[in-house]
Design a protein around this nucleic acid. Structure first.
Lengths: 164, 164
DNA sequence: CGTAGAATTGTTATATAATAACAGTCATCG
DNA sequence: CGATGACTGTTATTATATAACAATTCTACG
């Protein structure tokens, strides 16, 4: 991995290879603690998911894997790795896009809440403390016990809005 | 339509045929105002979507249509009707379930926010004023312009939790 | 009326996303 | 080592959604 690659999207310029390596070492730790095995395949899928801050479809990942390893893996290979990564809290699924994105802070398990730009397709993970309280309050009022929160806000990020 | 049917789920017993007829007459008005045509097919699909307070898949609707009208419609038939109903704000799509549900208050266009019980599968539409402010605040902070809100809270409703 | 144009619906084929079921391989521990 | 369980490979299939074009129906206008 090249250290000073250009970020894969024009916004929020940053050393993206740092994101990737941070994510990978965080993942090592998380799995270590959980007694789970971060195998080569799972690690590679996580790395691919992190190649940008955009949600990626399972079949996109398959394509990439196929290109680098001449024997094309079948869908279950990628889905199983994604299932594992989701269980460990390392990846979130974006239901409204049928796509997957790396979790920004896998240390403590949490729900993913996202702002998703329809133009540049970047997904920004929100701090859970921002929206969860409102949800918890409603759920409490309705005597509903929350198990999973899907919060996906689509629109335009500031850069894309300015550009338009 | 029988006036005093049993509700299709055990919770919140109510005269469900009233829900359906209310939804249909509201739909008439909404389309009237919008200058849109609520054709027989669209009306029938809306009625089917309202047959319970549970989200229904497009292929479930297709099945039902097939049973009543001996020539089986093809998927685009139902998807187009659903697209229309969504445009008019009469139906919401639940991304996390790939399913559709009638909108409880189509008079004013709005986003659908839902509590969804994983046990009885009922989806309760929340008043938008409950969670939207938190979203608007975050979006404002991030200088993000919101166009669509997907808020789907999964868990157990009070009745199902008590039962367990 | 009658017909042109637009909207709606029908039909066939296909794309896209996800999983079931079973076979083979690999890691680890006694 | 060898048995056990975890992981991966493989084939087939299911589930969800859309593209493209043909046929029909509605509506407005002459």
């Amino acid at each position: 991995m090249n250290k000073f690659v250009l970020p894969e999207h024009p916004h929020c310029p940053h050393d993206h290879s740092q994101c990737v390596s941070d994510a990978l070492s965080a993942a090592e730790q998380v799995c270590e603690r959980a007694g789970a095995r971060l195998t080569a395949l799972r690690k590679r899928v996580l790395e691919l998911v992190w190649q940008s801050h955009r949600p990626l479809g399972a079949y996109d990942l398959l394509e990439t894997l196929a290109r680098e390893d001449d024997r094309r893996p079948a869908p279950p290979t990628v889905y199983r790795a994604l299932d594992f990564l989701q269980e460990q809290g390392l990846v979130h699924r974006i239901a409204s896009l049928n796509a997957f994105i790396g979790c920004a802070s896998p240390e403590h398990t949490h729900q993913g809440h996202f702002l998703i730009c329809r133009n540049c397709r970047v997904a920004i993970e929100l701090d859970q403390s921002l929206i969860h309280p409102a949800i918890a309050k409603v759920a409490d009022q309705m005597d509903f016990s929350v198990e999973a929160e899907t919060v996906e806000i689509a629109g335009l990020c500031s850069q894309c809005r300015e550009a338009a």
